[in-house]
Amino acid sequence: MSDTVLLAHGSGGIKTQQLIQDYFFKLFDNPILNEATDSAVLDRPKGKICLTTDNFVVQPQDFPGGDIGKLAVCGTINDLAVSGAKPQYLSVGFILEEGLLLSDLMRYVKSMANTAKSAGVRIVTGDTKVVQRNNCDHLYINTTGIGTIQSEQEHISSGRKIKSGDAILINGYIGDHGMAIFSTRFPKQVSTKLLSDCNCLNELIGDLLAKKCKINFMRDPTRGGVAGVLNELSTQLNLGINILEDQLPVRPEVSGLCEILGFDPLYLANEGKVLLICPKEESEKILNIWRKHPLGKNARQIGHISNEHKGLVVMQTCYGGKRLIDPMISDPLPRIC
């Protein structure tokens, strides 16, 4: 029988120590973590810091293009990166279900370690709890991230510098993650080779910051999709937002499946996309920089900020008609016919 997580792994005793040594220390390996202190002791950075936290409960834990481990690292790194910060450190909290295969845990931990390493971010502290069987779905992961931010980027997450005429850009195809996850839940009904776009965006965004691009706003359109972010923004700042239907980058597989299932790609989750708003004259520079990066090859402008219809997101259809893009109620449901 395969080795599994036992309640003893969370008891604080020898099994806990073994788990920490053989899995976390071994794979997350770095001098700060290896001190094995209750708190990670970090150098004080120049300027201000950004702090963010996120919980990861994705089901299934393995999906085409990634797994819960990769997602837990990318998700928090991206929240820092889109705020204009340089991600530096992560903490990780695991809630493990009794009976989880240790081989599965090893795979997720390896995936976290590899993702963090390639993003240049260190996992410096953590915690593990084990709950009884059926009290959680295999495992849940929390990651908290610290990044450093320069004063000239502080406005990016609020969007307070956005003005009429600004361009709205995205770094590639939308809806891949949402549709990839959906296809794994209905494997016999939905057959696709789509991969989740799950990726760390700090390098792609770092390139822009290094080249002093003027950015007025960034956010990653995860749950709720592009429509969700744009609606939040238009409501919070009372902005009119115009989207051009014929400019939206959607893969044929995603739009085809959306047609069949009754979904709209604008509402599907992404895990490797950033929506960026910048002055109109800055857009070409940004798109040119992005298109040289593998995660920005299909970057393009999808709309602009308008003086009209304040507080609403409106799409101009390919035929010149207009329609409202309203906020999503909850997860999209496949329709009857």
Binding site: T317, Y319, G320, G321, K322, R323, C337
Partner: peptide, 15 residues
């Protein structure tokens, strides 16, 4: 209903 949805989605009434 599928037609209602499509007609509104493509903004046909305004055209």
């Amino acid at each position: 209903g599928g037609h209602t949805h499509a007609i509104q989605r493509y903004g046909l009434p305004s055209l």
